[in-house]
Amino acid sequence: MSHLHIPDGLIPLPWILAGIGLTVLLVCVALRALSMRDRARVVPRIATLSALMLLAMGLPIPVLGYHLNLTVLTGMIAGPAEGFIAALVVNLILALTAHGGITVVGLNALIGGLEVCLGWLLWRSCRRVFRRPFAAAAIATVVALLISTTAMLGIVAGTRINPDLALHRHSHAELAEHTEPADDHEHAELEEPADHEHAPGSDVGSLKAFAAIVYSAGAVGWAVEALVVGSIAEFITKSRPDMLDPGSGRRV
């Protein structure tokens, strides 16, 4: 996969609320940026791009367990304001179909929105450097997905959902109070990750293992997404170059 959907039940409440709060803030910024445009034009464009993202997710890709996202392409076409709202719309629909958590819609929208914004920014930069739209789009896609995956890992690290921390705290406390600490872990209540004390060594070790899984599985997904987005960009540039014109003044 190129893009991890954070499921419910993983992230502590303060982070869920922070994700929703930041998403609301960014939606307000996007709405302000779009306020001068004709809403009758903006709404269908956001809706169509959202539908395209959902459509791409259903495409039968010949790599096991993988689906496309087209978030980067959405950023390239629509820009950050419309693209961010499209990412939110898609995440709302995905959450309702159990593709990503309902409580973490905010965080998932932030990650999707980051891909959209990076797609817009990187496409504009890469298009100046690379002559072929395929190369520019593919590189923009890989870099955007790499950064968004790292951001997702940052959320995981930030929420301190590492159970090693809990184990260490429990074992220290039990060793101090009891003489038979070995089996008591099983009876200890599992605390919410956010409550855990910090133990940098174990935290880093566990995060490294998780990051290794995510980056190695993600790399295949980024390559698949880059190839498809590159092909789409090449096709559209030949047929309707105005749709992907990085110099277009209407994008915000």
Binding site: G9, A98, N162, A166, S206, I213
Partner: peptide, 27 residues
Amino acid sequence: PVFFAGLFALSWIRSNPLLALTVVIRS
């Protein structure tokens, strides 16, 4: 979502299988 939760839980499975299990069941 269990697949994704399993991915998150995979890195904890040895250090705290109970939390890993809880997370997967919750998802």
